[in-house]
Design a protein around this nucleic acid. Structure first.
Lengths: 224, 224
DNA sequence: TCAAAAGTGTTAAGTTTACACCCATGA
DNA sequence: TCATGGGTGTAAACTTAACACTTTTGA
């Protein structure tokens, strides 16, 4: 019994906005809610914070459980705490967004959790205030992507410049001039051309590039 | 008893980073903590969220209690939820930053709460993770101030261009060319020159300006 | 009359945007 | 041989940055 114990306590949850990129479109990993109330509705993947768990660790745990991945790029979006946001009981929820390479996730796990990739431009109605969370996360993603080289988290290790451009176009929602885009990429020494060639999307083949994190940490200049 | 009730509950608090501007310097309103543990240490003004209160409303309540002001400009900074961040008990805290006009606040109230304005460049050591909260809020403020006309929240209704420039210099932490600054201000039609003149800081007198919120909402262009 | 802050334009450098054709290859 | 996506440069428009002197007035 101390000074704090006169004050109320609340359930605290985390909810994850998981971004992926596939075939030129930005996607979100959404789940059919597995418990009541409102079981079966589309929702973000979430979970309650445990007693001896940092809130960031709770988000990592939830993401790992759903994707099988460790070391996911993740940022906090913010806390959502309206009194009636959750119709089950009062729950204060902390939203996180994550950027993952769709090809790396464990599809059996997502399948077990009734989770599916949905196009960001065509999302179904979501549970509670999850749509607000998504919107806020998306605004943050767009801002972030201009300032820091995080787009690569959504791509495989090796990627073509066309893929990279389509990714940026999908995120910022407008088309980019191909020559100007490639000019800017060429100026970033940490986006390295490899000897490998992708022959899947064109007869001619496209050079594969790689993001060099160490080189970026020295140069630290990014602008898109 | 429902599905949620198997999960733990937590104390949830809000902490407020209150920015002010006085004599060319950006300031924070800090408080001597009024209860144990660690009573008397410098801390942010905070409070526990009440059972039937939105988290945003809790921040509004705390700010009102300390300053006497309604309608304070406020934004969420984020949730801080490390297990041991508070040595009293586990508390998940949501940080908010606020921009206030120092001249409008009720100084008796701040005095009653042992709260004082400290220069942002020379802060004392703060309780728990409050310094992290301040740093994160400050980064957000700097980013915000480039994109949106929020600086005016820190100034009186009428202000001189020199004051406005000093405010921006204090926030972004670098000096700005006077002619370039005034040129940009002149292009923003929502920063209006009034007939009033300030005679306090110069013999010659300086024109007083006003921020016109309605005009801004039509024009919606800001860049600094 | 002078000290102190207010006010005022121009030019060069850098950045951004617009724009169209040839290349390599497999089917 | 042709359809498909890959790859390449230049010039104009715009934006940003650098820079120094005159004005006003109260003490």
């Amino acid at each position: 019994m101390n000074y704090y114990s006169q004050y109320p306590k609340f359930h605290v949850a985390v909810d994850c906005i998981i971004f992926g990129f596939h075939r030129g479109a930005l996607k979100l990993l959404l789940q059919r809610r597995p418990f009541e109330p409102r079981a079966g509705e589309w929702s973000l993947m979430g979970g309650f914070v445990r007693r001896d768990e940092d809130i960031d660790a709770a988000a990592v745990r939830v993401l790992h459980k759903l994707t099988g991945l460790h070391d996911i790029y993740m940022r906090q979006v913010g806390a959502f705490g309206s009194v009636n946001r959750d119709s089950g009981d009062r729950v204060i929820s902390i939203a996180y967004f994550a950027l993952v390479d769709i090809d790396e996730i464990n599809h059996e796990l997502t399948h077990e959790h009734s989770a599916y990739w949905e196009d960001i431009k065509n999302l179904p109605p979501l549970l509670f205030d999850h749509r607000d969370m998504v919107d806020k996360a998306y605004v943050k993603l767009v801002a972030l992507v201009h300032r820091a080289p995080v787009g690569f988290k959504l791509l495989p290790e090796l990627f073509t410049l066309t893929q990279l451009q389509q990714l940026y176009e999908a995120i910022i929602g407008e088309s980019i001039d191909k020559r100007n885009f490639r000019k800017r990429v060429a100026e970033m020494s940490f986006i390295e051309k490899t000897d490998a060639v992708d022959k899947l999307t064109s007869r001619r083949g496209a050079a594969l590039y790689r993001f060099n994190e160490e080189a970026y940490n020295i140069e630290k200049k990014f602008k898109l």
